[in-house]
Deep mutational scan, measured.
Amino acid sequence: MDSLVVLVLCLSCLLLLSLWRQSSGRGKLPPGPTPLPVIGNILQIGIKDISKSLTNLSKVYGPVFTLYFGLKPIVVLHGYEAVKEALIDLGEEFSGRGIFPLAERANRGFGIVFSNGKKWKEIRRFSLMTLRNFGMGKRSIEDRVQEEARCLVEELRKTKASPCDPTFILGCAPCNVICSIIFHKRFDYKDQQFLNLMEKLNENIKILSSPWIQICNNFSPIIDYFPGTHNKLLKNVAFMKSYILEKVKEHQESMDMNNPQDFIDCFLMKMEKEKHNQPSEFTIESLENTAVDLFGAGTETTSTTLRYALLLLLKHPEVTAKVQEEIERVIGRNRSPCMQDRSHMPYTDAVVHEVQRYIDLLPTSLPHAVTCDIKFRNYLIPKGTTILISLTSVLHDNKEFPNPEMFDPHHFLDEGGNFKKSKYFMPFSAGKRICVGEALAGMELFLFLTSILQNFNLKSLVDPKNLDTTPVVNGFASVPPFYQLCFIPV
């Protein structure tokens, strides 16, 4: 009986604490739906499609509103004006990374994606500088992407125009580009180590996009005490870190300090320079996690976009025909596509942009946080508050993009057929937390897609009208449904 009384008292205290925290903070924060004790607004949000729920709530509470995930307040920004004001106009104040408990377990605050403060700034600055020195957006990395595009075309030829699921092959190409940047090595598509790495990356994007992960991140005790797919994700990350550590040891034994070959060499050189400046942010643990982040951000996002792009091109054969006509006119058949071609191919450029806009790969991006107490639109948001960005509300804005739910390359073309930029184009987020590999991803999408369409016609196994382009999961990332196609050599 005594234990029951204690339990009831504990629960009562928890409920009172929950109510007090919510009521004391709500006077400062933007308005929002009334949260339930302990669980907050979790029942009012469709976990399978958070973005749709945010759109519905914005119609009631406006472009800036507050939700509670458990006891934790989260300020939501919906629509271009609110997102721009926060991420661009007040970029420094909104540059923090929001709480992501599962990532905390995986990387302990290291790396480039989930770190904060001085650690994040130094690692991000170093990573950007190193990638630029190796030619991100310049010639040397373009050579690597072109080489991988040629290998991709050869792998597709091996399908002999038979029906195939493109998931694996389209994942190999961007993964190999990242391998060449980090390890100075590309792998054969049949290499077992490479296959294991690909498998872990593919599993992780599916797990991260599941409703279960949303629950884990908002009720963090689940991570330590409950079984579930989150444990598989943590094991996959541990596998990748151990693999990278092996490569780091190989580099330490063979590195030429006067001739760095890749990202690992550059990081080890930085560690050597910083060894007298303790404590340094440049450690082996930081290198492991930064490399894992580059793999995660640079492989599955690009391969998922490529997979979605081919599905949309199957669905819209008239678009595919126009792209192939432009390829034939500008590039021809006797040389590989290059980035200089893009400025002469406005329709193809528009298609690449429209694919990214339409699929809305990361509907709410990753959570941000404010780095200080900030007054925002007459609300006071306390330091450390998590900020949720609705990228969907920007990419699918119906004023900027008429009929935003329709796939239409003319969203990025003017009346004369010239490519038209849009400030609403934010597939990689915006501001200080914009994806480090934005330029690389854009290069890969253009070169891989043009190389495929230069060499193959795409054949659907069903009537294009019957192809479903609805994402199968739409949590962290929008993942396309399973499909097969035939690559018919031109």
Rank of each mutant, 00 (worst) to 15 (best):
T392C: 08
Y225K: 04
K247T: 10
P174F: 05
F267Q: 03
E203F: 07
N334T: 09
I178Q: 02
N176V: 00
D49V: 04
L36G: 04
K423R: 10
L4H: 00
T299K: 03
S58N: 10
E104V: 10
L233G: 03
L413T: 03
S254G: 10
P221V: 07
V60S: 12
S365F: 14
G431Y: 14
C10D: 00
D49E: 08
L268V: 07
K420Q: 15
V351F: 08
F425P: 05
N204E: 04
V177K: 00
K273W: 06
S286H: 14
G332W: 02
L77Q: 01
C486K: 08
Y308L: 02
F456I: 02
N398I: 12
I488E: 15
E272V: 13
S23L: 08
P63H: 11
C151K: 15
T348A: 07
S343W: 13
N231T: 13
Q484T: 06
F428L: 06
L57S: 04
K206T: 13
C175W: 05
P211C: 08
C175F: 15
L17S: 06
E328Y: 15
E154Q: 13
D463K: 10
P174S: 12
F187M: 07
R186W: 00
I45G: 04
V248K: 03
L90R: 15
K270P: 03
Q356Y: 06
E274W: 08
P367S: 04
N474G: 14
V113L: 12
V153P: 01
G416P: 05
D468Y: 04
F487G: 00
R342F: 04
H410A: 11
Y483R: 01
V472C: 13
V472T: 07
A477M: 09
V177S: 01
E300T: 09
G437A: 07
N202T: 11
I47N: 13
R21K: 11
N204W: 04
D143P: 05
S451A: 10
M271L: 07
I222W: 08
K84E: 09
L17P: 02
Q146H: 05
Y189P: 06
F487V: 02
D188F: 04
E92L: 06
V292P: 00
G40W: 00
N378L: 02
C486F: 06
I47W: 15
L67K: 00
Q44G: 09
I205P: 04
L314N: 02
G135F: 12
K119P: 07
Q278A: 13
R329D: 09
R186H: 03
M129N: 12
K241G: 07
H276S: 09
N196V: 14
M406H: 08
G79P: 01
Q252V: 10
L14S: 06
G62C: 00
D360A: 13
S280Y: 06
E154N: 10
R26E: 09
N258A: 13
E300R: 08
I387R: 00
K206V: 09
E444M: 05
I141H: 08
R186P: 02
P101R: 08
T469R: 03
K235Y: 06
V473T: 12
N231D: 07
F263L: 12
G62I: 01
L447Q: 04
K138N: 13
M136G: 12
K84F: 09
C338T: 13
L234Q: 11
R139Q: 12
L7F: 08
V319N: 03
A149P: 01
Y347W: 11
L485V: 14
L366A: 08
L9P: 05
K322V: 10
H78A: 09
S51E: 06
L156T: 01
L467E: 02
C10L: 12
H410C: 15
A441W: 04
T364C: 15
P37Y: 02
L449D: 00
H316T: 03
G79M: 00
M255V: 10
E285W: 04
R132I: 12
N259W: 07
L197A: 02
D373K: 03
A291S: 08
C151D: 03
Y483L: 02
A439S: 14
I123S: 08
I452P: 00
F267A: 04
G417P: 04
T66R: 03
D191L: 00
E354T: 03
K119E: 13
P337G: 02
Q340E: 15
L156C: 04
R21N: 10
S127P: 06
K421D: 15
I387L: 08
K375R: 11
I45T: 13
M406S: 13
L395F: 07
E148L: 00
F69R: 07
I331Q: 03
I74M: 10
S280Q: 07
L152P: 00
S303Q: 10
P464T: 11
R335G: 04
L197V: 08
P227Q: 07
P363R: 03
K121H: 14
I181H: 02
R150V: 09
L102W: 15
L234V: 14
R150C: 08
S115R: 07
A477G: 13
Y68S: 05
R132L: 12
F425A: 06
F407M: 01
C372R: 15
T55D: 09
D256K: 09
N116P: 04
A321T: 12
S220T: 09
N466K: 15
K232V: 13
V76T: 03
M406C: 15
V479P: 03
R97K: 11
L447V: 10
N133E: 12
S3H: 08
S365L: 07
D408F: 02
T283R: 05
I45M: 12
P33L: 01
L314V: 11
G171D: 13
C216F: 13
C10A: 15
S242P: 02
N474E: 13
M255S: 06
D265M: 03
L197Q: 02
K232R: 09
L467K: 02
T229F: 09
V370C: 09
L362D: 02
D49L: 01
R307L: 04
V5N: 09
P221L: 09
N289A: 14
T386A: 08
V177P: 00
P221E: 08
S429K: 05
I181T: 05
R329K: 09
E250T: 07
G117Y: 10
Y225L: 15
K118R: 14
L485T: 09
E250F: 06
L36T: 09
S12A: 10
P363L: 05
A149D: 00
E81M: 07
K273L: 11
S478C: 11
